[in-house]
Amino acid sequence: MSGIRDILETSVEGVLGRGVTPALLRDAEQGQWPAELWSAVEDAGLTHAAIHEESGGAGATWSEIFALVRSAGRHGPPIPLVETVVGGWLLSVAGLPSVLGPVAIAAAPDIEWESGGFSANLSGVAWGAACEHLVVLAGRVSPRVVLFARSDFTAVGAANIAGEPRDDLRLSDAQPTATGDWPHDPDALLMTGAMVRSAQIAGAIERVLEQATQYANERVQFGRPIGQFQAVQQTLAQLATQALLASAAAEHAFNTADARLSPFAVATAKICTSELAGLAASAAHAVFGAIGITHEHSLHFTTRRLWSWRAEFGGQSFWSERLGRQACAGGSTGLWPAVTHGDFSTTVTA
């Protein structure tokens, strides 16, 4: 693939491979901010991957960023790396200057804001309390990107199954730091969020596949490694196919996003990876047996993320209902053209 993609992947693997340890993950769940890890990620230029070069970023395209996000999914760093990449992209496309520090992102499609104070309740915002800036994509009619500083809102802490902050934010007549018109789909943040979560899930599935395969080769029962038993091999083989399918679905969404975020490809990616997340977590735990259930073991850092990420930015029911309604509206003759074209909208109106 392209040079930038490989450079980003090597860089993120290096930083997260060294920095994200079980001890760090445990401390983060207790509320400790991993300042060193954040600095390492920011210093490596990873947080600004999607920002245009003229604004000081790497100017990477989504297809180039895919491997970075998948790696983030493998390691599960307890920092808003992926959210900051998306936030930087929103600012950059809206023509706003980039910001330093961790960024939280939130969609507010129902708030048609033009100027003055901004009031909203935003729930489940990743690292909403810990961020330094908040990027909101507001409105549907004339969508705008609105940037706030941390001091502009209050936050009530909440967390997903993995202990990652998913905070509830309250903005009351807040004055934005900067605003810009959003020239694309008003659903862009929802779609981008679903797309990055699908790549994170793909990375996390690869991680549990590696862990479970290694364990099956080491753990001895009945006098031989359990990986020599066909029953265990069949489970791991299924897990391997799930890893490939998740990655393919996610990567395709990123590849198509280079031209334009594709509602079809994003829905496909999130529906498939969300289902595979549950299947893969269950297969990995089956291989590990009781030790994998313990808090001491590291497997749960990945499986608890799988169980969380599959439901964020729209879970299976949200995206599959949306896609299914389009499919039914298009009828049997609309289906295949939509699959090959990667889009229902043209066939539905035709």
Binding site: L244, L245, A248, A249, E251, H252, F264, A265, A267, T268, A269, I271, C272, E275, Q316, S317, W319, S320, E321, R322, L323, G324, R325, Q326, A327, C328, A329, G331, L335, A338, V339, G342
Partner: peptide, 26 residues
């Protein structure tokens, strides 16, 4: 099922379309 599915039908068909599209990429 027709052009106006209930939400359960829509979800199953959406899942099916997504799997078809993803498997095709593989």
């Amino acid at each position: 099922v027709g052009p106006d599915p209930d939400s359960g039908q829509a979800r199953e068909i959406g899942r099916l379309v997504a799997k078809l599209a993803a498997l095709r990429q593989m």
